[in-house]
Structures are given as structure tokens and as C-alpha cells.
Computed example of a mutant assay.
Amino acid sequence: MKALVVYATITGNNEEIANIIVDALRAKNVEVVKSEMSQTDVSEFEDVDICVVCAYTYDEGALPEEGLDFYEELQTSDLKGKTFGVAGSGDVFYGDDFNKAVDEFEAAFKKTGATQGSSSVKIDLEPYEEDIETLQGFVSELIKTTSSKTV
């Protein structure tokens, strides 16, 4: 089983989230690559079983500027047969716009025909112990969903 974890970060929080996900995947013997969103082509998702995006929400609900092309390309991709998951860090200060990028990337993945492997994870600022446990559960669900499709 192979996974690609793509992240965008300003503060380092989303890279930390990506690292937690990568470590959890590797602990379950998944071959995984981590890549920064602006350096990644959406077509790289075609070569893996599990597709993960970790994105921050900028200002009042904006997607990461360096990830806009990636987001646009994702919406028109065909990822049928793939499992996806989305996680991200945001700031509850922004109220209704808290972690809006997570919702936007989830909706984009759904347009690709990929299967959502776990509920999306929204973290307030940096990940703490309870968030790490949530992310480990997120990974377990992604693997379980992917395994059930290949049986």
C-alpha cells in the first residue's frame, strides 16, 4: 500500500500534522511520500492508494495561495479507486471560516471520484496530544477503507 501526503504551511503547523500522518502510516507499513503542495503535481496521486492533503486556511476562509493551482487541478482529476483524507490546522478565532480549506479540499476530492476514507480532521493551531490520537485514528480509518476496497 502506498500513500502521498501533500501539505501547505506558513506556521509549520500543517507540516507537523503531515509528519504525524506520515509517521502513523509508516508505523502501519504503508510506503509513504510527503511533499509540499507547491512542489507537487496532482497526477502524483495516480501512483498511490491513499491521497492525503494537509492545508491551512488563510485569513477569512482563503485557500493557501501556493496551493491554488493544485486545488484547481485536483477538482478536474480522475482519482476513482483511490482513498482520500483531508486534515488541517486553523484558528478558531475566524469562527465560521475556521479551517474552511479542509472543507474545500474535501469537496474537491469528492469531484474526483475518490472514496473518502475518514472524516476530515480540523485542528486549532498546533497539534496537541489529543490531536495526535485523532490523526492516528484518521490514518487507521484510511488504511481500513483502502484495504476493504482491495479485498
Results as ranks from 00 to 15, higher is better:
33 V>L: 10
117 G>M: 01
102 V>D: 09
99 N>M: 05
45 F>G: 13
77 S>E: 15
145 T>I: 05
52 V>G: 11
95 G>N: 02
31 E>I: 11
24 A>E: 14
102 V>A: 12
126 E>L: 09
102 V>R: 01
74 L>E: 10
145 T>E: 15
139 V>S: 11
127 P>E: 11
90 G>S: 08
140 S>L: 13
57 T>A: 04
37 M>L: 13
133 E>T: 15
100 K>C: 05
64 P>Y: 00
97 D>Y: 03
138 F>N: 11
45 F>D: 15
133 E>P: 06
113 G>I: 04
140 S>F: 05
37 M>C: 13
48 V>Y: 00
141 E>I: 06
148 S>P: 04
20 I>R: 05
18 A>V: 04
138 F>R: 12
103 D>H: 01
11 T>E: 13
57 T>C: 05
57 T>R: 00
5 V>G: 09
114 A>C: 03
32 V>F: 06
20 I>E: 12
5 V>K: 02
149 K>C: 08
8 A>E: 02
91 D>A: 02
122 K>L: 07
2 K>F: 09
4 L>N: 05
148 S>L: 11
90 G>M: 01
56 Y>R: 00
35 S>W: 07
72 E>Q: 11
90 G>V: 01
63 L>G: 01
113 G>T: 08
57 T>I: 03
141 E>Q: 14
144 K>C: 08
68 L>D: 12
111 K>C: 07
126 E>F: 10
121 V>Y: 09
58 Y>P: 03
124 D>K: 07
137 G>A: 14
128 Y>P: 03
144 K>D: 14
10 I>W: 10
144 K>Y: 13
12 G>M: 03
81 G>I: 00
85 G>S: 05
131 D>F: 10
111 K>Y: 04
4 L>Y: 01
36 E>P: 10
25 L>K: 05
11 T>C: 06
35 S>P: 07
8 A>I: 00
56 Y>I: 00
134 T>M: 12
83 T>H: 03
101 A>S: 15
112 T>F: 04
79 L>F: 03
57 T>D: 06
14 N>Y: 10
37 M>P: 09
149 K>G: 14
117 G>K: 00
54 C>W: 03
27 A>R: 03
106 E>C: 10
72 E>N: 11
145 T>P: 07
74 L>W: 05
52 V>T: 08
145 T>W: 00
41 D>A: 14
115 T>V: 15
57 T>N: 04
143 I>A: 12
69 D>A: 08
62 A>D: 14
26 R>P: 05
19 N>T: 13
114 A>V: 01
116 Q>G: 07
3 A>S: 11
38 S>T: 08
91 D>N: 09
132 I>E: 15
136 Q>E: 15
89 S>T: 02
37 M>K: 09
98 F>E: 02
109 F>L: 02
11 T>N: 09
135 L>P: 11
113 G>C: 08
5 V>Y: 04
101 A>P: 06
76 T>S: 13
72 E>K: 11
1 M>E: 12
21 I>F: 02
145 T>L: 07
109 F>V: 01
90 G>L: 01
48 V>Q: 01
